[in-house]
């Protein structure tokens, strides 16, 4: 029997009847056509399916769509459209931090959440934040570089505003 689920996906209210066995990832991909959320392992190991649920990264393969009732979901499509991760994407591109790109949307979710919490993370902290994200193409060095560079760049753009506020 289908269950009615109310969520906000990328800022827009969505009401949809879902089968209980549908994961949030299946719901986003199959029902809403948001295929930027990728499915790798479907058991919470690879991190390709990360989305933001109420602002925090979660595995869309481990959250049932019915459990997202009342939740606010942001996928890579939403973060791209608003420009929230534009600088991260640019930095990944500049540093060649992707090859096939399958893991990238999940990487960006982890990176975005990390930088929101910690504007200037160490390489160790970046590695820790990415510990649940697998990349099978490039290795992680370039990805860590790209996130560190974005953190530094965001700190520079934020700094003048802070100084102004202090004065």
């Amino acid at each position: 029997m289908k269950v009615l689920v109310n969520t906000i996906v990328n800022g827009a209210p969505v009401q949809e009847a879902v089968t209980p066995r549908s994961s949030l990832a299946d719901f986003l991909r199959d029902d809403l056509g948001l295929t930027g959320t990728h499915l790798g392992c479907e058991m919470g190991a690879c991190g390709a399916c990360l989305v933001l649920l109420d602002g925090a990264p979660v595995h869309a393969c481990l959250v049932l769509a019915v459990q997202a009732e009342g939740g606010r979901i942001e996928t890579i499509e939403g973060l791209t459209e608003t420009g929230a991760v534009a600088d991260l994407q640019e930095s990944f591109h500049d540093r060649n931090a992707l090859q096939c790109g399958y893991c990238t949307s999940g990487m960006l979710m982890s990176a975005q959440a990390l930088l929101a919490r910690n504007a200037a993370p160490s390489r160790d902290e970046i590695r820790d934040a990415l510990s649940g994200n697998y990349c099978r193409c490039t290795g992680y060095e370039a990805i860590v570089d790209a996130i560190a560079a974005t953190g530094r760049a965001r700190a520079v753009t934020a700094a003048p505003a802070n100084t102004e506020a202090a004065e």
Binding site: P57, V58, D128, S131, G132
Partner: peptide
């Protein structure tokens, strides 16, 4: 315990 995204749920 596990990874950051797992700890969120």
């Amino acid at each position: 315990v596990a990874h950051p995204a797992i700890r969120n749920r």
